[in-house]
Protein backbone atom coordinates (compact mmCIF):
# COMPACT_ATOMS: atom_id res chain seq x y z
CA UNK A 1 0.00 0.00 0.00
CA UNK A 2 2.89 2.33 0.86
CA UNK A 3 4.15 1.96 -2.70
CA UNK A 4 0.93 3.50 -4.00
CA UNK A 5 1.21 6.49 -1.65
CA UNK A 6 4.91 7.16 -2.30
CA UNK A 7 4.55 6.41 -6.00
CA UNK A 8 7.29 8.15 -8.04
CA UNK A 9 4.88 8.35 -10.98
CA UNK A 10 2.71 10.86 -9.10
CA UNK A 11 5.66 13.21 -8.49
CA UNK A 12 6.88 12.86 -12.07
CA UNK A 13 3.42 13.45 -13.57
CA UNK A 14 2.64 16.45 -11.39
CA UNK A 15 6.07 17.96 -12.04
CA UNK A 16 5.64 17.63 -15.81
CA UNK A 17 2.04 18.83 -15.71
CA UNK A 18 2.77 21.91 -13.65
CA UNK A 19 5.60 22.90 -16.02
CA UNK A 20 3.16 23.22 -18.90
CA UNK A 21 1.82 26.65 -19.74
CA UNK A 22 -1.74 25.43 -19.41
CA UNK A 23 -1.04 24.64 -15.74
CA UNK A 24 -1.67 28.28 -14.84
CA UNK A 25 -3.62 29.31 -17.93
CA UNK A 26 -6.48 26.84 -17.41
CA UNK A 27 -7.23 27.71 -13.75
CA UNK A 28 -7.18 31.39 -14.70
CA UNK A 29 -9.68 30.90 -17.53
CA UNK A 30 -11.73 28.53 -15.40
CA UNK A 31 -12.07 31.10 -12.61
CA UNK A 32 -12.91 33.83 -15.12
CA UNK A 33 -15.75 31.69 -16.49
CA UNK A 34 -17.09 30.86 -13.03
CA UNK A 35 -16.82 34.48 -11.91
CA UNK A 36 -18.79 35.48 -15.01
CA UNK A 37 -21.46 32.94 -14.09
CA UNK A 38 -21.69 34.33 -10.53
CA UNK A 39 -22.12 37.89 -11.84
CA UNK A 40 -24.72 36.80 -14.40
CA UNK A 41 -26.64 34.75 -11.81
CA UNK A 42 -26.67 37.69 -9.40
CA UNK A 43 -27.87 40.24 -11.94
CA UNK A 44 -30.36 37.85 -13.53
CA UNK A 45 -31.94 37.14 -10.13
CA UNK A 46 -32.01 40.75 -8.93
CA UNK A 47 -33.07 42.20 -12.27
CA UNK A 48 -36.71 43.33 -11.78
CA UNK A 49 -37.60 42.49 -15.35
CA UNK A 50 -37.03 38.82 -14.68
CA UNK A 51 -38.87 38.60 -11.35
CA UNK A 52 -41.78 36.21 -11.42
CA UNK A 53 -45.14 37.71 -10.49
CA UNK A 54 -43.36 40.86 -9.27
CA UNK A 55 -42.35 39.10 -6.04
CA UNK A 56 -39.69 40.50 -3.73
CA UNK A 57 -36.21 39.05 -4.29
CA UNK A 58 -35.09 36.99 -1.31
CA UNK A 59 -31.43 36.56 -0.38
CA UNK A 60 -31.98 32.80 -0.53
CA UNK A 61 -33.06 33.08 -4.19
CA UNK A 62 -29.84 34.86 -5.07
CA UNK A 63 -27.80 32.32 -3.09
CA UNK A 64 -29.45 29.35 -4.81
CA UNK A 65 -29.12 30.89 -8.26
CA UNK A 66 -25.41 31.53 -7.76
CA UNK A 67 -24.89 28.07 -6.27
CA UNK A 68 -26.66 26.25 -9.11
CA UNK A 69 -24.95 28.39 -11.74
CA UNK A 70 -21.50 27.66 -10.34
CA UNK A 71 -22.21 23.95 -9.74
CA UNK A 72 -23.50 23.23 -13.25
CA UNK A 73 -20.92 25.37 -15.01
CA UNK A 74 -18.19 23.78 -12.95
CA UNK A 75 -19.19 20.22 -13.80
CA UNK A 76 -19.61 21.13 -17.49
CA UNK A 77 -16.15 22.71 -17.72
CA UNK A 78 -14.53 19.89 -15.74
CA UNK A 79 -16.20 17.26 -17.94
CA UNK A 80 -14.61 18.99 -20.91
CA UNK A 81 -11.21 19.13 -19.21
CA UNK A 82 -11.04 15.64 -17.68
CA UNK A 83 -10.44 13.82 -21.01
CA UNK A 84 -7.63 16.27 -21.86
CA UNK A 85 -5.74 15.39 -18.68
CA UNK A 86 -6.39 11.66 -18.62
CA UNK A 87 -6.75 10.29 -22.16
CA UNK A 88 -3.25 11.32 -23.25
CA UNK A 89 -1.48 10.03 -20.16
CA UNK A 90 -0.41 6.62 -21.48
CA UNK A 91 -0.56 7.27 -25.23
CA UNK A 92 1.89 10.11 -24.76
CA UNK A 93 4.36 7.73 -23.11
CA UNK A 94 3.86 5.45 -26.10
CA UNK A 95 4.29 8.27 -28.62
CA UNK A 96 7.42 9.55 -26.86
CA UNK A 97 8.66 5.94 -26.60
CA UNK A 98 9.15 6.21 -22.86
CA UNK A 99 6.67 3.48 -21.91
CA UNK A 100 9.25 0.68 -22.36
CA UNK A 101 11.42 2.35 -19.72
CA UNK A 102 8.52 2.35 -17.27
CA UNK A 103 7.43 -1.21 -18.00
CA UNK A 104 10.95 -2.59 -17.55
CA UNK A 105 11.44 -0.76 -14.26
CA UNK A 106 10.13 -2.16 -10.99
CA UNK A 107 6.93 -0.13 -11.30
CA UNK A 108 3.99 -2.46 -11.74
CA UNK A 109 1.16 -1.73 -14.19
CA UNK A 110 -1.22 -0.84 -11.29
CA UNK A 111 1.40 1.57 -9.90
CA UNK A 112 1.85 3.25 -13.28
CA UNK A 113 -1.93 3.50 -13.66
CA UNK A 114 -2.36 4.84 -10.13
CA UNK A 115 0.30 7.50 -10.64
CA UNK A 116 -1.33 8.68 -13.86
CA UNK A 117 -4.81 8.58 -12.33
CA UNK A 118 -3.92 10.51 -9.19
CA UNK A 119 -1.97 13.12 -11.17
CA UNK A 120 -4.90 13.73 -13.55
CA UNK A 121 -7.43 13.81 -10.72
CA UNK A 122 -5.29 16.04 -8.51
CA UNK A 123 -5.05 18.68 -11.20
CA UNK A 124 -8.83 18.66 -11.62
CA UNK A 125 -9.20 18.82 -7.84
CA UNK A 126 -6.95 21.86 -7.89
CA UNK A 127 -9.52 23.50 -10.18
CA UNK A 128 -12.35 22.42 -7.92
CA UNK A 129 -10.51 23.78 -4.87
CA UNK A 130 -9.77 27.06 -6.61
CA UNK A 131 -13.52 27.53 -7.16
CA UNK A 132 -14.43 26.88 -3.52
CA UNK A 133 -14.66 30.60 -2.60
CA UNK A 134 -17.16 31.08 -5.44
CA UNK A 135 -19.10 28.01 -4.37
CA UNK A 136 -19.16 29.30 -0.78
CA UNK A 137 -20.37 32.77 -1.84
CA UNK A 138 -24.07 31.75 -1.59
CA UNK A 139 -23.63 31.19 2.16
CA UNK A 140 -23.61 34.99 2.47
CA UNK A 141 -27.06 35.15 0.82
CA UNK A 142 -28.61 32.06 2.39
CA UNK A 143 -30.67 29.30 0.78
CA UNK A 144 -27.71 26.93 0.59
CA UNK A 145 -26.28 24.89 3.44
CA UNK A 146 -22.73 23.60 3.88
CA UNK A 147 -24.12 20.05 3.57
CA UNK A 148 -25.39 20.90 0.06
CA UNK A 149 -21.92 22.03 -0.90
CA UNK A 150 -20.35 18.85 0.50
CA UNK A 151 -22.84 16.69 -1.42
CA UNK A 152 -22.12 18.56 -4.64
CA UNK A 153 -18.37 18.36 -4.13
CA UNK A 154 -18.51 14.64 -3.34
CA UNK A 155 -20.61 13.94 -6.42
CA UNK A 156 -18.40 16.08 -8.66
CA UNK A 157 -15.20 14.40 -7.44
CA UNK A 158 -16.68 10.92 -7.94
CA UNK A 159 -17.81 11.82 -11.46
CA UNK A 160 -14.40 13.26 -12.31
CA UNK A 161 -12.62 10.20 -10.93
CA UNK A 162 -14.80 8.01 -13.12
CA UNK A 163 -14.13 10.13 -16.24
CA UNK A 164 -10.39 10.08 -15.49
CA UNK A 165 -10.49 6.28 -15.22
CA UNK A 166 -12.35 6.10 -18.54
CA UNK A 167 -9.83 8.51 -20.09
CA UNK A 168 -6.94 6.32 -18.89
CA UNK A 169 -8.66 3.26 -20.30
CA UNK A 170 -8.91 4.99 -23.70
CA UNK A 171 -5.26 5.95 -23.30
CA UNK A 172 -4.24 2.36 -22.57
CA UNK A 173 -6.24 0.92 -25.44
CA UNK A 174 -5.44 3.35 -28.25
CA UNK A 175 -1.99 3.99 -29.70
CA UNK A 176 -2.46 7.67 -30.47
CA UNK A 177 -3.46 10.47 -28.13
CA UNK A 178 -5.82 11.99 -30.66
CA UNK A 179 -7.82 8.74 -30.96
CA UNK A 180 -7.86 8.23 -27.20
CA UNK A 181 -9.05 11.80 -26.55
CA UNK A 182 -11.73 11.61 -29.25
CA UNK A 183 -12.99 8.32 -27.83
CA UNK A 184 -13.09 9.69 -24.31
CA UNK A 185 -15.09 12.73 -25.47
CA UNK A 186 -17.46 10.37 -27.30
CA UNK A 187 -18.02 8.46 -24.05
CA UNK A 188 -18.61 11.73 -22.15
CA UNK A 189 -21.10 12.71 -24.85
CA UNK A 190 -22.92 9.39 -24.46
CA UNK A 191 -23.03 9.81 -20.69
CA UNK A 192 -24.32 13.37 -20.79
CA UNK A 193 -26.43 13.73 -23.96
CA UNK A 194 -27.46 10.23 -25.04
CA UNK A 195 -28.63 9.26 -21.54
CA UNK A 196 -30.67 12.49 -21.36
CA UNK A 197 -32.30 11.79 -24.73
CA UNK A 198 -33.03 8.20 -23.69
CA UNK A 199 -34.59 9.45 -20.46
CA UNK A 200 -36.62 12.05 -22.35
CA UNK A 201 -38.09 9.40 -24.63
CA UNK A 202 -38.86 7.01 -21.77
CA UNK A 203 -40.34 9.81 -19.68
CA UNK A 204 -42.67 11.12 -22.39
CA UNK A 205 -43.88 7.60 -23.10
CA UNK A 206 -44.43 6.98 -19.39
CA UNK A 207 -46.20 10.34 -18.90
CA UNK A 208 -48.68 9.50 -21.66
CA UNK A 209 -49.58 6.25 -19.96
CA UNK A 210 -49.56 7.72 -16.43
CA UNK A 211 -51.16 11.18 -16.65
CA UNK A 212 -51.06 13.13 -13.41
CA UNK A 213 -48.42 10.90 -11.72
CA UNK A 214 -46.06 12.85 -9.45
CA UNK A 215 -42.61 11.61 -10.44
CA UNK A 216 -41.10 8.99 -12.75
CA UNK A 217 -40.21 5.62 -11.16
CA UNK A 218 -36.68 4.32 -10.93
CA UNK A 219 -36.71 2.28 -14.15
CA UNK A 220 -37.69 5.38 -16.14
CA UNK A 221 -34.92 7.37 -14.48
CA UNK A 222 -32.40 4.54 -14.98
CA UNK A 223 -30.65 5.97 -18.11
CA UNK A 224 -29.97 9.14 -16.12
CA UNK A 225 -28.11 7.23 -13.41
CA UNK A 226 -25.10 7.37 -15.71
CA UNK A 227 -25.53 11.07 -16.39
CA UNK A 228 -22.99 13.20 -14.50
CA UNK A 229 -25.62 15.93 -13.97
CA UNK A 230 -28.19 13.58 -12.46
CA UNK A 231 -26.88 13.40 -8.87
CA UNK A 232 -26.62 17.21 -8.87
CA UNK A 233 -30.21 17.53 -10.12
CA UNK A 234 -31.42 15.27 -7.32
CA UNK A 235 -30.06 17.73 -4.73
CA UNK A 236 -32.41 20.42 -5.96
CA UNK A 237 -35.44 20.53 -3.73
CA UNK A 238 -38.05 21.38 -6.33
CA UNK A 239 -36.81 19.09 -9.08
CA UNK A 240 -38.93 16.93 -11.31
CA UNK A 241 -37.76 13.78 -9.63
CA UNK A 242 -39.06 14.68 -6.18
CA UNK A 243 -38.76 11.89 -3.65
CA UNK A 244 -37.86 9.41 -6.38
CA UNK A 245 -34.35 10.73 -6.87
CA UNK A 246 -31.64 8.06 -6.71
CA UNK A 247 -28.27 9.75 -6.33
CA UNK A 248 -26.79 6.74 -4.53
CA UNK A 249 -27.61 4.45 -7.47
CA UNK A 250 -25.88 6.94 -9.73
CA UNK A 251 -22.82 7.10 -7.49
CA UNK A 252 -22.62 3.31 -7.32
CA UNK A 253 -22.85 3.07 -11.09
CA UNK A 254 -20.12 5.68 -11.56
CA UNK A 255 -17.97 3.87 -9.02
CA UNK A 256 -18.48 0.54 -10.79
CA UNK A 257 -17.78 2.11 -14.19
CA UNK A 258 -14.58 3.68 -12.87
CA UNK A 259 -13.42 0.39 -11.31
CA UNK A 260 -14.11 -1.50 -14.55
CA UNK A 261 -12.22 1.09 -16.58
CA UNK A 262 -9.31 0.88 -14.12
CA UNK A 263 -9.17 -2.93 -14.31
CA UNK A 264 -9.22 -2.95 -18.11
CA UNK A 265 -6.63 -0.15 -18.28
CA UNK A 266 -4.19 -2.10 -16.10
CA UNK A 267 -4.75 -5.22 -18.19
CA UNK A 268 -4.06 -3.29 -21.41
CA UNK A 269 -1.02 -1.65 -19.86
CA UNK A 270 0.42 -5.03 -18.88
CA UNK A 271 -0.03 -6.26 -22.44
CA UNK A 272 1.22 -3.15 -24.18
CA UNK A 273 4.70 -4.54 -24.90
CA UNK A 274 3.68 -5.48 -28.45
CA UNK A 275 2.71 -1.90 -29.21
CA UNK A 276 6.11 -0.51 -28.25
Amino acid sequence: MKRYVTNPMIIKELRQRLRERRAWLLPTLYLFVLSGVVICAYYFTTDTGHRLHGAEVQGADIGQAIFLGVVFTQITVLLLMAPVFSSGAITLEREQRTLAGLLTSLLSAPQIWWGKFIAALLYLLLLVASALPLLALPFAFGGVEPLDMLKVLGSTILTLACICAIGLWCSAVFRRSVHATASCYAIVLVLTVVTAIAYGMLYSHWQQSHPGASGPPAHIQAPLFLNPYYPLLTFMEDNDFGMHAYPVSSWLLFGALGCLAAAFSMRSLQRSGEQL
Binding site: M9, I11, K12, Q96, R97, T98, A100, G101
Partner: peptide, 29 residues
Amino acid sequence: RTTLGYLPDVAGIYQDMRIGEFLEFFADA
Protein backbone atom coordinates in the same frame (compact mmCIF):
# COMPACT_ATOMS: atom_id res chain seq x y z
CA ARG B 1 13.82 -6.78 -14.15
CA THR B 2 16.01 -6.36 -11.08
CA THR B 3 18.88 -8.07 -12.90
CA LEU B 4 18.72 -6.43 -16.29
CA GLY B 5 18.95 -3.06 -17.97
CA TYR B 6 17.15 -2.59 -21.27
CA LEU B 7 17.80 0.05 -23.89
CA PRO B 8 15.30 -0.10 -26.77
CA ASP B 9 16.13 0.66 -30.40
CA VAL B 10 14.40 4.05 -30.28
CA ALA B 11 14.56 4.98 -26.62
CA GLY B 12 12.38 7.85 -25.52
CA ILE B 13 13.38 10.34 -22.89
CA TYR B 14 11.43 12.87 -20.84
CA GLN B 15 12.42 16.12 -22.52
CA ASP B 16 10.73 18.35 -19.95
CA MET B 17 12.62 16.99 -16.96
CA ARG B 18 15.94 18.08 -15.57
CA ILE B 19 18.78 15.56 -15.82
CA GLY B 20 18.88 15.12 -12.05
CA GLU B 21 15.10 14.71 -11.83
CA PHE B 22 15.16 12.13 -14.64
CA LEU B 23 17.70 9.99 -12.78
CA GLU B 24 15.93 10.49 -9.44
CA PHE B 25 12.66 9.28 -10.96
CA PHE B 26 14.19 6.09 -12.31
CA ALA B 27 16.13 5.51 -9.08
CA ASP B 28 12.76 5.61 -7.31
CA ALA B 29 11.20 3.44 -10.02
